[in-house]
Design a protein around this nucleic acid. Structure first.
Lengths: 159, 159
DNA sequence: ATCCATTGGTTCAGTATTCAACTTTCTAGG
DNA sequence: CCTAGAAAGTTGAATACTGAACCAATGGAT
């Protein structure tokens, strides 16, 4: 039984500030990346799918793997892929080894789009994030955030 | 004129890894916080509105200030406040000094909700983020991210 | 005083996301 | 074999978000 009424450990001023900075960076960065992708008619979600597929063997991935990789629900991914299919970036293909399964496959057009957009996206990530830190700061950041990511990943399965 | 066809500066392996960690932490953390708020019937957006209002003079804020503070569009905020109004957490009130304007005002119920939920939310932030770092790491993080936030804020106004 | 460009906010239509229900196929246990 | 679950995906209805169009009030200019 947890003691619900214990005095909570509020955040110190420094913690508060760090936390708010974290939130701000996230939101603003998401906004900016999305904005930089917009001229190409892609959302960040679209782009992420393209990245995943383009890095995969045979440019294809099982729907559920893709859902896991992008941390989306099956439903959401299904809708997303339908949209991208309509846009000609991707196509669904049956899976022989498991007849329940489907592959999302990158089309030629999808690949071409990816190749065209990627440099701009990387430039955007550099401009608004990576290149704003020294390599040491980046390494430290990674060392700090890595374990947090692991914790959150572990947490995710639970309950 | 920018040279579009210049060889892009791809991310190094370290940079790539740091970037992906960043993305993962964001997404997973958002997911987790949202999940921890769910038992109270609040979304993270709801909670953020409550925080802003509860920290304001007279527990009220102008719609547009609230939109700016939470980085949402006017439209989205308007919908959001409508929902929260229906839930009894907030109420709209006219502004005498500027008859175009409206205040979003925290109701008693909204304040009570805030007071009930805040300790749990703070605990969640600690558990999944703050307490996973040493104070030094946190300070470093803040020092690194602060300028990025500033850059992004400045960027935001443009174009 | 009058005009008009801004600001504050809402609304509507289109699009995206969520959540639960459903179909089909696979797997394990008897 | 046969059956009960579990897993892979889709679908549909309800909810949320976006972007443009809109109305009303403001604040300067002239």
């Amino acid at each position: 039984m947890e003691t619900d009424n214990a005095t909570p450990r509020w955040l110190t001023e420094d913690e508060q500030c760090a936390w708010r900075t974290h939130l701000a960076v996230n939101r603003l960065l998401t906004y900016q990346l999305e904005k930089d992708l917009q001229p190409f008619g892609l959302t960040y979600n679209d782009y992420e799918i393209l990245v995943n597929l383009s890095e995969s063997e045979s440019l294809r991935m099982r729907m559920s793997d893709l859902a896991t990789a992008t941390l989306q629900s099956k439903s959401r991914l299904s809708h997303q892929i339908t949209r991208m299919e309509n846009a000609g970036l991707v196509r669904r293909e049956n899976c022989e080894s498991d007849r329940r399964g489907l592959y999302a496959v990158l089309t030629d057009e999808g690949l071409a789009t990816m190749q065209k957009v990627a440099p701009h996206h990387v430039a955007s990530v550099r401009k608004h994030y990576i290149d704003l830190m020294t390599p040491e700061a980046l390494a430290t950041l990674r060392a700090t955030l890595g374990p947090i990511a692991d914790h959150l990943h572990a947490q995710r399965g639970k309950a």
